[in-house]
Simulated scan of single mutants.
Amino acid sequence: MAESNGNSEPVFLIFGKNGWIGGLLQESLKEQGAKYHLADARLEDRAAIVADLEKYKPTHVLNAAGVTGRPNVDWCESHKLETIRANVLGCLNLADVCNERGIHMTYYGTGCIFHYDDDFPVDSGKGFKESDKPNFTGSYYSHCKAITENLIKEYPNVLTLRVRMPIVADLTYPRNFITKIIKYDKVINIPNSMTVLPELLPMSIEMAKRKLTGIMNFTNPGAISHNEILELYKEYIDPEFSWSNFTVEEQAKVIVAPRSNNLLDTERIKGEFPELLSIKDSLIKYVFEPNAQKKDEICAAVREMRGR
């Protein structure tokens, strides 16, 4: 694959500069001292994409653009055309333009395109591999993401990373999976694969440098349940914290679209990064131990979020 800027120094171009993952990528690249730029083009505008590529001459494109919906993916159920435009057409447009120019593209997709079933039972330890076909289309968001993954895998220049229930250290950040569940009085209790971004995002930059392609389950090894996470929160942050559980059927009454629950196989990513921590160990190292130093501040903020 060609080095677009004519030398061996990687030059990254981020699409989705105003998004959550796009912002975190900027921080990570800055920490690494890497050369990067922020794209201005909207993904639906092919001419604008070409203009950005010609202006910045990247060797690597990081695509963190798209819509997930606010406050959650239920938004996509009533904004289907916007979802198609950003998450299907736009993503493929960028991949196609990059492929024409021999530029490696990393696409931050989703692993929320699978769910437990008779072949992959809960607690069986059997995870969905990169080669498995998506079996969850319960939400329009997941439906579109599955279509995109199936199409984009034909591009030889693209690495698709299946992100799941992303987590950061900031326990008051609204898009953090842990923040979402500590806000609620009731949660479901199902083990899931999850992505601890402080550990994994820097690895995605290294994956781009290695020019890995195809699909990668982008999660920490193993699964962890909602209750296990809340027990860690209780142990490290707030001993008085309490919650209760409800069933998937009860949850369905308060959400518009079903949610994906699954375990993803991590053999490929562990092969590239043997040092990758298990989901529980990663949560302790990157989230709970750092936050234990400021637990009073966090407790006050969480109680305010919960209206207590």
Score class of each variant (00 low, 15 high):
188 I>G: 01
155 Y>L: 12
159 L>W: 08
173 Y>Q: 12
176 N>F: 04
207 M>N: 05
232 L>G: 07
218 F>K: 10
212 L>F: 09
208 A>C: 10
175 R>H: 11
184 Y>F: 08
207 M>K: 08
235 E>D: 14
188 I>W: 05
189 N>Y: 10
190 I>N: 03
169 A>T: 15
195 T>N: 07
204 S>P: 05
235 E>T: 13
189 N>V: 01
228 E>N: 10
155 Y>S: 13
172 T>I: 15
157 N>A: 05
222 G>R: 13
183 K>R: 14
184 Y>K: 14
210 R>N: 13
174 P>F: 01
209 K>P: 02
229 I>N: 06
175 R>D: 12
177 F>S: 06
196 V>I: 15
164 R>V: 08
233 Y>N: 08
179 T>E: 01
154 E>L: 13
171 L>K: 04
224 I>E: 06
159 L>P: 04
176 N>P: 03
205 I>R: 07
217 N>M: 13
234 K>P: 00
153 K>V: 15
218 F>N: 08
234 K>L: 01
183 K>A: 15
149 E>K: 09
157 N>T: 12
214 G>I: 13
195 T>Y: 07
212 L>Y: 11
238 D>Y: 12
222 G>M: 12
185 D>C: 06
191 P>K: 09
210 R>P: 00
215 I>G: 06
165 M>Q: 10
152 I>D: 11
148 T>R: 06
186 K>C: 06
193 S>H: 09
169 A>G: 12
234 K>R: 15
224 I>K: 11
162 R>A: 04
164 R>D: 03
162 R>Q: 09
153 K>I: 15
170 D>L: 02
206 E>F: 05
172 T>H: 01
168 V>M: 02
193 S>M: 10
177 F>M: 07
220 N>C: 08
215 I>H: 05
203 M>I: 05
237 I>T: 04
176 N>K: 03
229 I>T: 11
173 Y>C: 02
174 P>K: 01
217 N>F: 11
168 V>T: 13
202 P>A: 04
212 L>N: 09
192 N>D: 10
182 I>E: 02
152 I>T: 12
195 T>I: 08
237 I>D: 02
170 D>R: 02
171 L>C: 06
218 F>W: 09
205 I>S: 03
160 T>E: 11
189 N>R: 05
166 P>W: 01
229 I>Q: 07
149 E>S: 12
192 N>I: 14
184 Y>N: 15
160 T>P: 00
167 I>R: 00
225 S>R: 08
190 I>F: 09
211 K>C: 09
207 M>H: 09
167 I>D: 00
232 L>D: 07
231 E>Y: 09
192 N>W: 05
195 T>W: 06
165 M>C: 12
221 P>C: 12
158 V>E: 10
208 A>G: 14
165 M>T: 10
192 N>S: 12
220 N>G: 03
193 S>W: 06
